[in-house]
Design a protein around this nucleic acid. Sequence first.
DNA 1: AGGTGATGGAGAACCGTTTCTCCGTGAGTC
DNA 2: GACTCACGGAGAAACGGTTCTCCATCACCT
Lengths: 387, 387
Amino acid sequence: MTAAANQSGRRPTTSRRLERAGIRDVAAAAGVSITTVSDALNGKGRLPDETRSRVREVAERLGYRPSAAARTLRTGRSGLIGLTVTTYGEEPFTFTEFAYFAEMARAATSAALGRGYALVVLPASSRHDVWSNIALDGTVVIDPPDQDPLVSELYRSGVPVVSDGKPGNCPVTAWVDNDHEAAVLGILDHLSEAGARRIGLLTGTSTDTYTRLSTDAYLGWCHKVGQEPVYETYPAHDPAAGAVAADRLLARPDRPDAVYGLFDPNGTDLLAAARRYGLRVPDDLLLICCSESDVYAATEPPITTLSLKPRRIGTTVVNLLIDAIEGVDSGTGVDVGRLFPARYRTAGTGPPPGTLMPTELIVRASSQRRSTRTTVSPPRPRPAGEA
Amino acid sequence: MTAAANQSGRRPTTSRRLERAGIRDVAAAAGVSITTVSDALNGKGRLPDETRSRVREVAERLGYRPSAAARTLRTGRSGLIGLTVTTYGEEPFTFTEFAYFAEMARAATSAALGRGYALVVLPASSRHDVWSNIALDGTVVIDPPDQDPLVSELYRSGVPVVSDGKPGNCPVTAWVDNDHEAAVLGILDHLSEAGARRIGLLTGTSTDTYTRLSTDAYLGWCHKVGQEPVYETYPAHDPAAGAVAADRLLARPDRPDAVYGLFDPNGTDLLAAARRYGLRVPDDLLLICCSESDVYAATEPPITTLSLKPRRIGTTVVNLLIDAIEGVDSGTGVDVGRLFPARYRTAGTGPPPGTLMPTELIVRASSQRRSTRTTVSPPRPRPAGEA
DNA sequence: AGGTGATGGAGAACCGTTTCTCCGTGAGTC
DNA sequence: GACTCACGGAGAAACGGTTCTCCATCACCT
């Protein structure tokens, strides 16, 4: 070990007020080169254990923390993943508007963290300069609208993008979504079995994938079984409009004897509307809504809900993204291996690889004429294991 | 304008597969130096408008995006703010467990974004190497426990830290909290006025500031008015334990005729417990709980809630933090100006400057013997303006 | 004619790592 | 005894910006 404890590198002897110790300081204090320090701390290079531990010791003593910025600049990896959330109205983003987003984001954060990444929350509406000023290794986008310029630019600049929700016309690296069609069909069947003669739908006016696919599935089912569609639409982001729409639906002359509501608050709203019209649930009206909230276990009566299992979605999205980040850098081949049940997946230059995740119907009193069983029964066999 | 369109800088002529355009590429294409490009794009230096716009045009054409990493390395600013959320149990973090966190985080994100910063969500329990690998300009910590090593290290390394919740024994730059004592006293007075003879409390077992201050205020009030304390505690992070505790409280021989529950689900749980014991609300039992959820507007009967106004908290926390980041770099003088009503604030080397924010009591049927008024009445005059 | 100030812009250091290249040295080999 | 290797580690070039310093040039003034 050579004695190189004097000024190493170009650091000027003067000034330099006491700031954080840099790698050069550690090198000087340990009497080695900065190369050795870097290698010792990162477990690289060929160094005897003695040197390694000595350097580590010195670094610890000096409270050395490598500069994330410098590392990012050099390696091209920031360890940061963007989480783009949609914006409704003037509020920056829904995020917690519906429990779905909250749960999904939570799971995503957790999954990312488990693999050494952190999540940056970025509303889609945020000023361009804000998120273009952040070094992102990849981005998760939630339900991107068609031709989303943000997604396009990200993708074009080489940043992997994985979307929650089948993208309409966006070039994404991969996507994950529920099998909304299967879910709706399962619900309609369930209601039919429970004795429903005319099933209504409470849906949204927006054109996002979820709303579109679900509504289409409903309409298709109606066409197939020969029922006249009975549905009302409202802007899903408006909490007040939901109650009004629920009321409208039950006030129709062709009042349905069963209703599925696509959005979280629909259950409460429909229940209230039913009460106003003197309809008993489930005797006069069967009720199901899509929700992640467990308040529906405690309503009077408890309401059957469809869970989209947002945790699983969030976990999967992040894992796919990180696989893409750490996998083959360029090229189409995203390493979508071993990950969850993939119902549908394409390769080559066609549409990006997508993964469909199952949903779960939590059957409660509101969707059963005479409460026989109250066990949990998924619409289709769900895969074992995983969150 | 000199013709310097040839190889500028040290970039090697060979290789260099087509990647993102750098500032050197822009400089070469525009026939200027990189200094000029930087100045033109950042609005600095003395440049004629003609040069400025020309450079901007070229940069646009080349799709130039400055490297966030390089900028961060040079300027020492990343535009990133950490949001540390507490961990309960095995779940990575509560975040959306209670609506309070969700709302607060949402407001914080929005406020940060408005000032050009993005938020990184970082559970306090995350591995050291994860968040030490991120260049943070500052951090928001939610209710840090005493002697939080994470906070200490951050603070020591010069990163501004602002906490939501009065810190026990942590060196933070500033903190923001509700006036929990005033809130509880206001509630107790409100219940007394409504005719309560013996007021009970449903509280938590943890030692966080909120629980401690609130409970202490209750005990102090009991002592003052000469009432024997009637309270039950339970681990607040356990959803099932709340219902059990609510039941315990109403099963006591010295059953209270009014109850305040410190946590969000307490209202529902207490209502259910009251029903089990055949107690009518509000006739036999007055009920108030602390919650940000509006489900309590629709319960039977509607329940009076205390809102901690998490949006205001989140906004204030972030603004304080960014003020600290952009203000005087070192030194104690945080530029806590014009921001909200500061009840309590110290300077110098004493405790860090804190800001107390008012709460809001939303009076509903559950806390009034005979429903007279149902207007919103804050426990104390709240300041006009702001979110 | 020389000084002066404003204007426009170039040069180069620097931010703090990672990593590629290469070098000295001592032990084993033919 | 010259050669080859493995070992341990040093040097220096990036990474891609920002910014401090300084230099022409030219008009204007005295």
